Structure formats: C-alpha cells, structure tokens
Amino acid sequence: MKRIIMGIIFFTAGIIHFLKPGKFAGIVPAVIPFKTFIAYFTGVLEVIFGILMLGGKVRNKHLTAMQAFLWAVFPANIYMYTHQRQLGLSHLPKWALLGRLPLQKLMVDMLGDLKK
C-alpha cells in the first residue's frame, strides 16, 4: 500500500510540474539558476519515480534515488515557508507550509520501509 501511495504522490506531483511550471520555478531558492529547467527536470523525475512505484518495478537503488531526491528538493519547502509573502503564497496558512517539512521526512521514511 505504501508503494501505491508514494507512486500516486510522485506521479501526480510530476504531472503538476508540467501543468504549472511557473509555480514550481518560483519556489526554487533565489540563489539557484535555471529555475524553469529545474521545475521541468524535477517533474520528469517525479513522473519516472511514480511509474516505477506504480508499476512494481522499483528496486532498492530506485528507492535510494527517490530518498536523495526528496532531500535535494527539501530546500524548496524551506524557501516556501520563509518567503511565503514574496512567493505569493500568503493565501496559504503558515502551518500548512511548515507542515510540509516533516512530511518530507515521513516520505523518506516510507520509502525506506519499502527497501528489501
């Protein structure tokens, strides 16, 4: 069940990167260049991860890559929380943005539970 949940999360998030690339480019921390490219690239990775998870073809090396990916994008979640107003996210409650931070760790742990 964890594999299916994570597959849906990754696949859906990846598709949304292509539907709203500007939103995802906007949460890339200011010091990082090529924001739109990064938005699309991370979207591609998430779609691939989702397909692997949903297709049942996932191996430990894939799970490790997914965990590394989640830690690599973690700064974007911190950036969203610390730059909420500048990013036009004032409509979101502060607690929701803060809640994304431990959610990332939970997802990493769920992936770890799937390792054989």
Rank of each mutant, 00 (worst) to 15 (best):
M1V: 12
K2P: 03
K2V: 05
R3M: 13
I4W: 09
I5P: 01
I5H: 04
M6V: 14
I9T: 13
I9G: 04
I9L: 15
I9D: 03
F10Y: 12
G14D: 06
I15R: 00
H17L: 02
F18K: 02
K20C: 07
K20Q: 11
K20H: 06
G22A: 03
K23P: 01
A25S: 13
G26V: 04
I27G: 05
V28L: 06
P29M: 12
P29R: 04
P29E: 13
A30S: 15
V31M: 08
P33V: 03
P33Q: 07
F34V: 09
F34K: 01
F34M: 03
K35D: 06
F37W: 10
F37M: 07
I38W: 10
T42R: 10
T42W: 09
I48Q: 02
L52K: 09
L52V: 04
M53V: 01
G56M: 04
G56L: 02
V58I: 05
K61N: 05
K61P: 07
L63S: 00
T64Y: 07
A65F: 03
A65V: 02
M66Y: 00
M66I: 04
Q67W: 01
A68F: 13
L70Y: 10
W71L: 12
W71E: 01
V73W: 06
P75Q: 08
N77S: 12
N77Q: 09
I78T: 12
Y79F: 12
Y79G: 00
T82F: 14
T82H: 06
Q84M: 15
Q86H: 10
Q86Y: 11
L87I: 07
S90W: 15
H91A: 14
L92R: 07
L92Q: 10
P93E: 14
K94I: 15
W95T: 10
W95P: 02
A96L: 15
L97W: 06
L97E: 03
L98C: 01
R100I: 03
L103I: 09
L103Y: 13
K105G: 08
V108A: 07
V108N: 12
D109P: 00
D109V: 11
L111W: 08
D113W: 08
K116I: 07
K116G: 15
